[in-house]
Write a protein that binds this DNA or RNA. Structure first.
Lengths: 328, 328
DNA sequence: CTGAAAGCGCTTACAG
DNA sequence: CTGAAAGCGCTTACAG
């Protein structure tokens, strides 16, 4: 920058003002600066800018696994929105490991990111507070964070579990199984509660299998439930759904004949299975834009409490539940 | 940090030395510092560290779309390796848009990232040179970059196109179609050349449909080729494969009876279709670790030319090609 | 409209 | 082993 200033015959301050457009500069000087920038091939050093501003133009995105299409979509949409607003995206994949999540969260605090959009495994991790203390605008995605200062974009998870179950009950199923995600996930717990309430209200007994990891043992869970007499399954989460579908294929169990399936989640391959999957789709893209908007709002005007937004799932009636794939 | 130094009764230099472990410090002072850090809840400011070091402890990862499982896997594996080595990951999704790629590349240069792992749409984008000029260690992933200073981790794309075609020829197919990715992709061009060579050597005429976008019109391409008499298809890329499989489902065309399919790529849903997909799988995880290793090597000892590593595809013989899913 | 100057929070020769 | 001091490349009151 000094070089540019010299060559343009102005001060560094003026160069800065021209480049940032922060103040008016006489047109001729402006042109000289721009010219010098061109000649030298000057590239502003963003590290220095961040240093000066005491804040990195970046937002951390914390997810349990980018390989889950739910999160790939989310990351993609968040990246788009951030890019449009001039933020870089610092991707943190926790692999569903609480320890790794904690390290990533502290890392983001040390990095002085402007904001973070996190899908917390541990909603109550103290590092979330640390991140907020560092001045970052935090928005939880899909699951709420315990800290009230964090905003949140969530889905109607209880309702999803409930209506998926009712949908199956309405089709005459009385032995409905539930396969959900690992314990700490708040959303997964709500899916299950919704399921239990619906099934219980119908006088049926809930039969639940819960997986410890993200989908690895969905097949085993399905086997367990089906041997226990289940004729229908509510399956929450894409990796879990993949694992269950794979198991059914191997066992040559037909959907919906042998087992009816409703999945909570919307993997891109839902239409490629035979039959395609009836599912409750979370509006991931809309949620992602909303999350970034919420973050930016918090950045602009300081607020004490984070705003919470709730999105509804959308039915995708396809063949895995009722033969024709038709609703009701 | 000043506060910590005061409280511990030492200089800032000593605090820095304790925290970075860069030099020996008398144990008692060390403890005092650590204690003060604890008390104040001091969090080092990484922005300042980066500023001082003139380099961010970060690596940029540039991909056309994280939603393509090929890249989700790649990003995940790269993130893992970077995390282990203490680097943050700056994710840049270009949406296959050359202009966005250029902006992202310049952005990474401005950000003074230590390195970058890029899957270039435009292998010859001058911004790659700019990034290298900024001092970053650049490794191309899946496609080579034109600049010789960049390392590369690629696959045997020509061979894949060739052997996929030969596999189908060996099964008696004479009218084999090829559906590949958009033009600028080097890998896609090589797949096609391999296909053309194999088909040509067998005395058959190549019939090619190429998509402009990443998979959207795979169905249309398939329709075109099948109406043109193709009894087998080589399909390159996950999004393209999804689109083709979807089309075949809708048209109730059976694999491999009506159309035999070999895909180049290995989506996680390859085993969920009916029948499962015979494919040539790129060893994405191994490639990703190799890419990070290459990057770190370049970081440690300055070299003029980038190393190039080539990986082979692995056959996954399943049902979409020959009924039993058996090889040969 | 513009420049001189201070300072963001670290790290690292340098001297002791 | 340790401290004082310089400096990384910007931005921004402040004074003119």
């Amino acid at each position: 920058m000094r070089e540019v200033a010299e060559r343009a015959g102005v001060s560094a301050a003026t160069v800065s003002r021209v480049l940032s457009g922060s103040a008016c500069v006489r047109p001729d000087k402006r042109d000289q600066v721009l010219h010098a920038v061109e000649e030298i091939g000057y590239r502003p050093n963003r590290v220095a800018t961040n240093m000066r501003r005491q804040r990195a133009q970046m937002v951390g995105v914390v997810v349990p696994s980018v390989e889950d299409p739910y999160f790939s979509q989310m990351v993609r949409a968040v990246e788009d929105a951030c890019y449009a607003k001039g933020f870089g995206v610092l991707l943190c994949d926790t692999g569903s490991d609480p320890a790794k999540q904690r390290e990533h969260l502290s890392g983001l605090a040390a990095e002085r990111v402007a904001g973070a959009i996190i899908s917390p495994i541990e909603a109550g991790a103290p590092e979330i507070g640390e991140l907020l203390d560092s001045g970052a605008a935090v928005v939880a995605f899909g699951r709420r964070a315990a800290d009230p200062r964090a905003g949140a974009v969530t889905t109607t998870d209880f309702e999803a579990g409930h209506s998926a179950s009712e949908h199956l009950l309405a089709r005459g199923h009385t032995r409905i199984g539930f396969i959900g995600g690992p314990r700490p996930a708040v959303a997964a717990a709500e899916h299950q509660t919704g399921y239990e309430r619906a099934v219980g209200a119908a006088g049926a007994a809930p039969i639940v299998a819960r997986s410890s990891s993200l989908g690895d043992d969905g097949g085993r869970a399905a086997k367990h439930l089906i041997e226990g007499g289940a004729t229908a399954l509510v399956v929450a989460g894409n990796p879990m759904a993949a694992s269950v579908v794979h198991y059914l294929k191997i066992e040559r169990l037909r959907m919906p004949g042998d087992v009816a399936l409703v999945t909570i989640g919307q993997p891109p391959w839902a239409e490629l299975t035979n039959p395609p999957l009836t599912s409750l789709a979370p509006p991931v893209r809309a949620m992602a834009s909303a999350a970034v908007d919420l973050m930016v709002q918090r950045l602009e005007r300081e607020r004490k409490r984070g705003t919470r937004l709730v999105f509804e799932f959308e039915w995708r009636h396809r063949g895995s539940c009722c033969p024709g794939g038709l609703p009701e």
